[in-house]
């Protein structure tokens, strides 16, 4: 019972902060001088990108811990974090391209920050696909942990590669830079808090789903072993 209170509280709190952040983006934050209204994408976009990257860091870290300890709960965290992170990065890529159109005049440009989000998207779509390939749970956990580690190492390498690539072939990417006023900073910080709370809530729910699945699998395995399959 106590546990459930916790979960409900967490969910309600994250919805509350999310709505507050949404209100601040449209009502509190000032209109940006050069880009105009479209700049308001920035707050949630940046928060989503940062928390998405953080989610993949959690996948990496829990993957390492899983390989050392072989405890299922770390694997559950690893998988849940990757799935939630993928949702965040998907939003980042789509809204990044919605931002690029009015500001840079094209839906897609190989701007480093946009590109690194796309690279992360490709990496973790592959991770989720690996997760769904039918293998014994223990093997898929080990494989996914290794892939999560290699994928996370690829992110900074890609970042530098894209940065150097874009500076060697300079492109006119004027615009998109701005001076942050205090009100903008407050809005960004509340947006970050909103996405952090959302991440924690979704991570916890996804992990609970996996725990229930494990219970069901254990129950079914026991029944099969006892000889009566029941109505499964």
């Amino acid at each position: 019972m106590k546990r459930q209170w916790w979960d409900w509280g967490l969910a309600i709190a994250s919805v509350g902060i999310f709505l507050t952040a949404l209100g601040m983006v449209f009502l509190y934050a000032p209109r940006e001088a050069t880009m105009g209204e479209i700049q308001r994408i920035f707050y949630f976009h940046v928060a989503s990108a940062w928390i998405g990257f953080f989610a993949f860091f959690v996948t990496f870290l829990t993957g390492v811990i899983y390989l050392i300890t072989s405890q299922r709960r770390w694997d559950v965290l690893s998988l849940s974090s990757a799935e939630v992170g993928l949702a965040f990065i998907t939003m980042t890529v789509i809204t990044g391209s919605l931002w690029a159109r009015p500001v840079w005049g094209t839906y897609w440009t190989w701007e480093p920050r946009l590109t690194i989000s796309a690279v992360q998207w490709l990496l973790y779509v592959a991770y989720v696909m690996l997760r769904t390939s039918t293998l014994s749970q223990e093997r898929v956990a080990r494989f996914a942990a290794v892939y999560g580690i290699v994928a996370f190492v690829t992110v900074p390498l890609s970042w530098f590669a894209i940065r150097w690539w874009r500076t060697i072939h300079p492109e006119i990417l004027s615009g998109g830079e701005m001076a942050i006023t205090p009100r903008m900073l407050h809005t960004l910080l509340v947006s970050l808090a909103a996405f952090t709370a959302l991440y924690v809530t979704l991570l916890r729910q996804r992990a609970l789903l996996e725990r229930d699945r494990d219970r069901l699998a254990a129950l079914q395995a026991r029944w099969v072993a006892e000889g009566d399959i029941g109505d499964v």
Binding site: V119, L123, A126, A151, T154, S158, F160, I162
Partner: peptide, 11 residues
């Protein structure tokens, strides 16, 4: 699985 990991190498 492999090609996204090769992005920095290929660039």
């Amino acid at each position: 699985l492999l090609l996204p990991l090769l992005i920095p190498l290929l660039i």
